[in-house]
Simulated scan of single mutants.
Amino acid sequence: MKKSTFFYFLLFGLINFIPLNAQQQITIGSGTSTWYYSPITRLFEYGASETIYDASEIGVTGTINSVGWNIVSSAYATPTGNVSIYMKMSTQSTITTTTNTTGYTLVYTGNVNNDVLGWQNITLTTPFQYNDSTKNLAVLVVHASGNYTLSPPNYAYSNVPDKSSYYYSISNAWNETRTMIATPNRTNIRLSFGNLSTVEIDGKASVKYYPNPVKDIFNISGSQSIASVDFYNLSGQNVLSQKFDSKDISINLSRLTTGNYLAKINYKDGSSKTVKVIKQ
């Protein structure tokens, strides 16, 4: 490919870069039916829900900074108190009616607002590292608010069998001895990612690059041996080049200024791949 042609595609690709401070939101589920048992039920004083979202539905890896659920009707002014949100990566693909917090990370504890219709996004107190694209994401939500309403918030859900369970009680808080109720009603979820890792597959070849956005160390790994990597800025200038002889490499980008770049990955077999990189 001629140099001028490469720069044309370079500039064209940069048009679609996301802002430097943006996070990528992944929404799973598009169903419009509603119910009030999951993720948090306000019809009862105590409740819990466990949900599995498949890796193929998430499509990226990175740091999950917030989680959200869509309240469609009956927003309730009083916040839900004593809410604990747990996350874990898991090979489990089918829900069971018994669960515990083993393997889970407590990512949020506190009150949750439910007073506005639409997506209610909760910033995690402990961002969750979802860093294995082969594993599913399990989300366990437990609340012991101690109060209820006869008009609880209704959340949008999709019909996905064997992925969700829930628990509710007037007087008994959830613990690992409680039996959950399996349901095909899986609540739609929105995950906000930062420090993304992207996996791309072209034919039999695959490449993974992360984090993106990146502050200093940028990692590339894949199924082919890498010969070199060239970084280009918005003006088409080659601002950094390094040679390698490995399938797994790390590059220090700390000396690059904040901005958008394209990284051209050159393989030992003569092929190449260009990916977008955001430098913070």
Rank of each mutant, 00 (worst) to 15 (best):
L150E: 15
I170Q: 13
S158E: 11
S171L: 13
N172L: 08
S158V: 00
W174I: 02
S169D: 11
Y166W: 07
A144C: 13
A182Q: 15
N147I: 15
R186E: 02
Y148I: 13
I170V: 05
N172K: 05
P161M: 03
G146S: 06
Y167A: 02
N185T: 01
S171K: 11
P184A: 07
P152Q: 13
E176D: 10
T187I: 05
K163W: 01
M180A: 00
Y168C: 08
A173R: 05
T187D: 08
D162P: 14
P161R: 01
N159M: 09
N175H: 04
P161E: 04
Y155M: 11
S151A: 14
N172H: 06
S145P: 01
N154T: 04
W174H: 08
S169C: 03
T187P: 01
E176V: 11
A182P: 15
T183P: 13
P152V: 07
I170A: 11
A156C: 04
N159C: 07
N172D: 03
H143K: 02
T183K: 07
Y168H: 00
S151K: 07
P153A: 08
S164P: 08
W174P: 10
K163E: 01
T183G: 09
S158Y: 02
M180C: 02
E176F: 13
A156D: 09
H143Y: 01
T179N: 12
P184R: 05
N154D: 11
Y157W: 14
S164A: 14
A144D: 13
H143M: 02
P153E: 05
N147H: 06
P152K: 12
S165G: 02
I170M: 10
N185S: 10
N175L: 03
N147V: 12
S145E: 09
N172E: 10
Y157K: 03
N185V: 01
A156V: 04
M180I: 04
S145K: 08
